[in-house]
Write a protein that binds this DNA or RNA. Structure first.
Lengths: 152, 152
DNA sequence: TTTGAAAGCGTGAATTC
DNA sequence: GAATTCACGCTTTCAAA
């Protein structure tokens, strides 16, 4: 697997872009003491190496009609069946994240929904798509989410 | 509280920026059938209204030396104490997300760490900072994370 | 890694609908 | 109120060194 030691300058660039994904190459240059084209090349290389996987805007879901967030922990009903939950659930748009985990359950999903009724419907779709039982934990308050964690 | 019905064009802009946070105003204009300055104004308004909370790069944590991810569910040891866990934990840099939840535990944290030993140390810091007991669920595989969920 | 040049983009003001 | 056009300056991008 990967991991080829990230240079201090590249680390700095990653950190800056994690905090402000729209920062210009000019400003990245000023912040790192490099020329615009030098950072430009480094960023392109970081993208190619897969260290930068993409860029996104952080959306206020509560204000665009998706006020309900929840964690859904799932376990297979028939443990002898092939364990392909991730693939079976991929098409469901309300699923924001999908992790397999070590613990009482096999997977944890994070989902967004409009209303309790819509969440109930979503649960039914998840159960039937993946043949699993579910345990749902409703999010009450999001204090923060996806803070940049870059180490050091 | 907020929620003032998001216009179809604004919805489209939010969706496009959620998928590519570095998309240019020119391209946003082409994709929405508006002039560059029209989208520019709309994006500025979406930022002011707080519907766009920021922009970030998605980093491959495994490859920058943070291969361990985990969920930490916590419950207060002394339920009579004020419930200010989020504030007490905010300074810990390994905590990527912090939610209060309805369920057996009061909070769920998502953390990133380097090694099992570093995770053990992190758990100790969390317990002593917030006076809580913890239950840790290690992430084995991240199938996907923070997919754009914009509804409709 | 830098420089330099061309193309493209962001930004604001004036204008129109 | 919101969209467009135009113009200026800055940013991106690529070649060459």
């Amino acid at each position: 697997m990967s991991q080829s030691a990230v240079e201090p300058t590249d680390r700095k660039i990653l950190q800056l872009l994690a905090e402000d994904g729209r920062m210009s190459f000019t400003d990245l240059g000023k912040a790192t003491g490099l020329s615009t084209s030098a950072v430009h090349q480094r960023v392109k290389r970081l993208e190619q190496r897969g260290l930068i996987q993409g860029y996104g805007a952080t959306i206020n879901h509560a204000d665009i009609g998706l006020p309900l967030a929840a964690f859904i922990s799932i376990r297979p009903i028939d443990p002898s069946q092939p364990d392909d939950c991730a693939a079976r659930l991929e098409h469901i748009p309300e699923i924001e994240s999908c992790w397999s985990v070590a613990g009482e359950e096999s997977y944890v999903l994070k989902v967004r929904s409009t209303t309790p009724a819509a969440l109930e419907d979503l649960l039914a779709r998840i159960r039937s798509a993946a043949n699993v039982s579910t345990r749902t934990t409703i999010v009450l308050t999001t204090y923060y989410e996806n803070r940049p964690v870059t180490g050091e």
